[in-house]
Amino acid sequence: MTQTHADYQLSQLDQLEAESIHIFREVAAEFEKPVLMFSGGKDSIVMLRLAEKAFYPAKLPFPLLQVDTGYDFPEVLACRDRWVDRLGAKLYVASVEEAIKNGIVVDDGKTSRNRLQIGTLLNAIEENGFTAAFGGGRRDEEKARAKERVYSHRDEFGQWDPKMQRPELWSLYNGRLHEGEHMRIFPLSNWTELDIWHYIGREQIDIPEIYYSHQRRVFQRGGMWLSESEFNPCKDGEVVVEKTVRFRTVGDLTLTGCVESEADTIDKIIEEIAVARVTERGATRGDDKFSEAAMEDRKKEGYF
């Protein structure tokens, strides 16, 4: 940012940043026990950067919570640890593995890890008494998200009721809760995928290397390239090949596909996205493919 503004005009990235910082500060001021849901993906890292700016030079006034599917990319976990170290933040890890062992969620062999995260997450929120949970969701991601509030109310079962949402006016957020309820907070509501990338570039933000083009052993399943992994054995007829790829989203590695790409810099990634003809979720997320309303259903149950 330049030091003087002759025309008193803020660029749209600066306006988005200012809005998000405002949201972080409102929540820190008004909620007893907020937490930032950290996935290690680019959106949650941008959230972390904005939170860092909101409270600087003080440390984050809330901890981070990560739901560990057990199927996370090692590069993502390494990046998470770098951020946690640098900010001196407190990190809670809620493990899906543990939740299965303790009978909090049931692994019937058919339900994806992504879906099992819901119970694990809700349990972690309840157990720790978190009253507000920041999520990296953006309204441009998906149709169900387009109607979500910045402050998204969840009942005592963690459910979202799209028909009972509170009207949200100006920048006046209503954080009222009853016992056992919590609020999901979406500071990136008005950011688009391109905004996120421009911001990562401008702020020189450290993100997992797998977002950049690299060589990887992959196989094809359901129209997507999946990473070879011990968690994800190949089925009959699936052949592992080496490709130059990158990931557009990072999640459960058994479900998150990569795209063939030579984009190894932010500029090239932005160029690639600008001409991309498929949404990031449509391209690479098996979890959103099951039905047109997949996201809406998961959200109602308490998904991120």
Binding site: S11, Q12, R202, T265
Partner: peptide, 20 residues
């Protein structure tokens, strides 16, 4: 790797883009 690639960020447009 990430650090080197980020330095290659040259896009100027979004800095000037405004919002309606």
């Amino acid at each position: 790797m990430a650090d080197n690639t980020i330095e290659g960020y040259t896009a100027e447009k979004p800095r000037q883009m405004d919002l309606l």
